[in-house]
Write a protein that binds this DNA or RNA. Structure first.
Length: 445
RNA sequence: CGGAGCGUAGCGCAGCCUGGUAGCGCACCUGCUUCGGGAGCAGGGGGUCGGAGGUUCGAAUCCUCUCGCUCCGACCA
């Protein structure tokens, strides 16, 4: 993409309303525009990252054997009357009346609707296990939205629902979600720690929240800092292997890690003092097992092998997709701007043309751009007629992990400069080598 | 919802206290110079001062109401 033809309204000054780094940088880097309290338009740069995150979530869900579908944002109130949550949910639920005076609502979550779909089409134990998920906009009418997309009223969320014959199978689904979530966050360059959590309005006994440590997080967290070293890495996981999946979960949940809601001061004392940490975290996902809480009142049952009709065991599992942008930036920025991890960056690399209009630099940039494209990498090419300083500042702000700088000075000796946004280190090399290097960095991402 | 504040050009702000016909920086447009870390000079365009009512000869400024937004608290993926 040529920057001169793109739509990237960067701001030089800090918007007054943004209090935290991620919000500030998302506004300044032209990623979002607020339209009302807690409601945002996603401008092209922000939209690219949002789509990228969505894509990773989808890939990891499918890898775990889960099946995508799409449910609507608007739901009939009657479904929620069946589960009893129409009255329980309170002011946070946005209620709407249509022209026929029918009660509707903008979905804050989809347990009722997915259960409705299930009961309409599934009747036999032979159809289980089944896990369906979607990535859809939700609305929760927060009393006080804040921190940009971290705490918006409208937000994009992946929510998945498992249906199993037995509690044991449902707990395997729970574990499977935990492992797939760990992998999802790792691919985004995040360390998200599963912490025992409280269940809230979804209900259920088993639940973990995934927290990304950040000073600006909204939850207070207590943890053994050795959890930070745990990584899934490249290990091969068979999501159907109950023992393997359970073992991974055990590995990641044995060390002490809890939010203030479930904190146990006594147990925390047993953590060696050197590893005992108190901090703050951003919640980027949560998994629940809640048994028959919805299947029973809503009649989601299957017939078993011996002819009995039983309610299915369910769980629900969410990832805050739009919130993740905020969390990733909170964990990856400096005083100049964002530093995108390679897994989610809007563009893999930026090309800075230091002398727009100079035949040699223009040609070198075009060549690099084309060579990257031939390798399936779309660079953001700053071909604006701007001074070097302005181009560097923009690149630093929007945070592409790599920058190829092309100027007459370097070209004189056949070199361009490859710079890491994260380390700030630069290296001179030929254009072909720079393309090769970028290409190998993104191999497999 | 309780407490605190703010709405003046695309963004950041001054002006309001003490009414007199709107200003600064950035951005934008034109020209010249400059050109490896947010350039300089000169010229230029852009604002029903959130909205409605009121007081007054006169309101961005004073009064009343209203809408929106932000911050602290309780609530949350």
């Amino acid at each position: 993409m040529r920057l001169s033809r793109y739509f990237l309204p960067v701001l030089k000054e800090n918007p007054a309303e943004a209090q935290i780094a991620s919000h500030r940088y998302m506004l300044r880097a032209g990623m979002i525009k607020q339209q009302a309290a807690g409601i945002y338009s996603w401008l092209p740069m922000g939209f690219r990252v949002l789509r990228r995150i969505e894509e990773i979530v989808h890939q990891e869900q499918v890898r775990a054997g889960h099946i995508p579908l799409l449910m609507p944002t608007l739901q009939p109130a009657d479904l929620w009357r069946e589960s009893g949550r129409y009255d329980d949910y309170g002011e946070e639920m946005l209620r709407i009346t249509d022209r026929h005076k029918r009660d509707m609502l903008y979905g804050p979550t989809n347990e009722e609707m997915i259960t409705d779909i299930f009961r309409a089409h599934v009747g036999s134990y032979k159809d289980l296990p089944l896990t369906l998920y979607h990535i859809q906009w939700k609305f929760r009418d927060e009393i006080r939205p804040r921190f940009g997309v971290m705490r918006g009223r409208e937000f994009l969320m992946k929510d998945g629902y498992n249906f199993d014959l037995t509690k044991e199978d449902a707990l395997h689904a729970y574990n499977r979600h935990m492992v797939s979530y760990l992998r999802t966050y790792e691919r985004m360059g995040l360390t998200a720690i599963p912490m025992r959590a409280a269940s809230g309005p979804i209900g259920g006994d088993n639940t973990h929240e995934f927290l990304v440590l950040a000073q600006t997080g909204e939850s207070e967290v207590f943890y053994d800092d050795r959890v930070m070293a745990l990584k899934l890495g490249a290990r091969d996981i068979d999501y159907d292997d109950k023992d393997q999946v359970a073992n991974v979960c055990e590995e990641f949940t044995t060390l002490y890690a809890r939010t203030d809601e479930t904190h146990d001061a006594g147990a925390f004392e047993t953590v060696p003092e050197a590893h005992r940490k108190v901090g703050r975290g951003i919640e980027v996902g949560q998994i629940f097992y809640f048994g028959t809480k919805y299947s029973e009142p809503m009649g989601a049952t299957v017939v078993t092998a011996d002819g009995a009709r039983v309610p299915v065991h369910m769980g629900s599992h969410g990832i805050g997709v739009s919130r993740l942008l905020g969390a990733i930036i909170e964990a990856n920025h400096d005083d100049k701007g964002i530093i995108w991890p390679e897994g989610v960056t809007p563009f893999p690399v930026g090309i800075v043309n230091l002398k727009q209009g100079d035949a040699a630099t223009d040609a070198a940039c075009a060549e690099i751009y084309a060579a990257l494209r031939a390798r399936g990498l779309e660079a953001l090419y700053d071909d604006r007629d701007e001074r070097a300083g302005a181009k560097f500042a923009s690149m630093d702000l929007i945070g592409l992990p790599w920058r190829i700088t092309v100027g007459p000075r370097g070209l004189a000796s056949g070199k361009v400069e490859l710079t890491s946004r994260r380390s700030g280190e630069s290296e001179e090399m030929s254009a072909a080598d720079a393309v090769e290097r970028i290409s190998s960095i993104y191999q497999g991402i």
